[in-house]
Design a protein around this nucleic acid. Structure first.
Lengths: 120, 120
DNA sequence: CGGCTTTCATTGCATTTTGCAAGGTATCAT
DNA sequence: ATGATACCTTGCAAAATGCAATGAAAGCCG
């Protein structure tokens, strides 16, 4: 085991916390999926109903990523095995707080934004 | 002037504050530019020194966007007209707080992140 | 069973964005 | 005048996105 550096979580652009957060959620869709999850959405089809109209391939990809990163789990609903149920892991619940921070910043700083769901 | 609706800030995906924030900074680079500005970077070349190694065309584009959106200004340095100085507008300073929120969330929730500049 | 619907996901293809290297212009230094 | 510096653009390959269409597995219902 000569050159086994200790797996430094590579393909990171840097160890700057800002850069790492952007590597995780720095795109136009991931946090919208998080928003919907926070609002109680659990099924694939429900995400498609949100007003931003995410495409199915993007949604599929983002759910996979979030799952791979350990922020959500995917389970088959026992009563109907066609359905999958997506939910936050404990760790994933922190994403809700992140999304909430963004939401509050947006409400304060971007004109004409409105919170459909003030509880966030 | 019949059909001059009042320019409803279109090309928005929705009026959800999360979606609007993502329309502004939902990419891998914009907030890194904001970070550098917050750290005192003012010249084009300095942004290129950051460890994430942004490409010149992307940097040029992001500076333009931030300027177009009224968050930063671009001025020519009087003493050396080759140089441009990029600085936050009053409104742009709010981007620092947004970036700071992300940074703190990342430090707390993403392993092996380190703050080079704890003042943020 | 046999056909039809629902749910989740993939595929193909056009468009857009990114990444990288090279080139270009204006300004400055000697 | 020559060369270096600062900012930006261009060209082109690679990747991500948007979209419509297609699958596959599971359920529903005669």
């Amino acid at each position: 085991m000569a050159n086994r550096k200790k797996k430094p979580t590579l393909d990171r652009r840097s160890n700057c916390p800002v850069a790492c957060v952007l590597d995780l959620v720095g795109d136009k869709w991931t946090l919208l999926v998080v928003r919907d999850l926070a609002l109680g959405v659990t099924h694939f089809e429900e995400f498609l109903d949100s007003p931003e109209k995410i495409a199915t391939n993007i949604l599929s990809d983002r759910l996979k990523r979030l799952q791979a990163a350990g922020y959500i789990t995917k389970e088959t609903e026992p009563a109907d095995k066609r359905k999958s149920i997506y939910t936050f892991t404990e760790r994933g619940k922190e994403l809700k707080t992140l999304m909430g921070l963004l939401a509050r910043w947006g409400l304060k700083n971007i004109p004409n934004t409105s919170a459909e769901h003030p509880e966030l």
